[in-house]
Design a protein around this nucleic acid. Sequence first.
DNA 1: CATAAGTAAATGAATATTCACTTATATTTG
DNA 2: CAAATATAAGTGAATATTCATTTACTTATG
Lengths: 196, 196
Amino acid sequence: MRARDIDKENLVKKTAIEIIGKGGFEHFSINKLAKACGISVATLYIYYKDKEDLLSSLATELGRKMGDAMLKDFDPESSFEAGLRQQWLNRYHYMIENQSISLFFEQVRTSSYQEQFLKAFAEDLKNVFGKFMDNIVARGEINAMPLEVYWSVAFAPLYALIKFNNEGQSLGGKPFKLTDEMFWQAFDLVVKALKR
Amino acid sequence: MRARDIDKENLVKKTAIEIIGKGGFEHFSINKLAKACGISVATLYIYYKDKEDLLSSLATELGRKMGDAMLKDFDPESSFEAGLRQQWLNRYHYMIENQSISLFFEQVRTSSYQEQFLKAFAEDLKNVFGKFMDNIVARGEINAMPLEVYWSVAFAPLYALIKFNNEGQSLGGKPFKLTDEMFWQAFDLVVKALKR
DNA sequence: CATAAGTAAATGAATATTCACTTATATTTG
DNA sequence: CAAATATAAGTGAATATTCATTTACTTATG
């Protein structure tokens, strides 16, 4: 029996991520992907049942990996500031080390594959972060508030900065690169917002 | 000379916004649009040079209108809190009154038409809001910081809440509707973050 | 040498765009 | 004032291309 070429399989994933990250699902097609990889379309149909399967597999796999990266060194029993710092750091490091994947996620988040992605991504996370939020509210470190209000204040600024950084530009096309200084500046503001 | 049917033209715009808002650019096509409007494809090629022209015209026009809505009753000489409140209110009201357009924008923001949109959107706004930021820093109401850090803390939470609301769900598919209470709760947190 | 990996070429459906044509109406002309 | 004309609006059917997927075949290797 002939063994599957792992390099080829990885090339497919990497290339798909790049095409989608750059041009969105609008400009992605199976034929383009095969051509960009220098392989036959039919090979893709050995790896994946169909286009839907390819994309949702990719979204699920990457979602899971990202979820794991988010949980690294995170302790739901830690204090509000220490816990939030770890979450910000995990996202920041992941973004720097996986720029093309971050761009891919940006597309997934506004697509029909969002659900697949969130399922893999949010399953464990929701429990761990939910627990963290319960703890810090119970300890009186932050006020009680709807999850969405907390999330929007605690993380939306970080994701906005990451998006600017990945696209290389901010408002009105102004060139932009996120620095550690800006990162911590934003973090401190968010802590100030939420801390009692 | 025959006059162009304005109703038809508006129907085209409205329908395009709906299709894209619902399914993204991925599921949008000229033929589908024509069929949904009950007109001939060829008519669309009278209104617009090609697909690209149709979409970037739409993004530009709506960007401009939204920009105008953002500036309503906004005074760059006002205090930090009053100014930010007006900006939040303008965005909030616009979202409520233009839900399908808000969904359309959500798609534009991760597409290749983002640039067109931002250009129309940010041209005037940048000056007015830049002036506002200069004023409040000069008056010592907030600390000096990069525009992107300010923007990410001041507005990203609001956009996150609006996105949840437009999609009708938040993290992990949890049903969600933004209330006035949550809106003001988030606003107060953001003010607390930025105020000296 | 059996078996799965891998392929080139083909399929029909969907896509963007164009074509040759008809229709409505503002303006001109008798 | 009404018939004629010009012109852009509007059309249905055709085109060429791209799409997702399949088929019939070759190749590599346990």
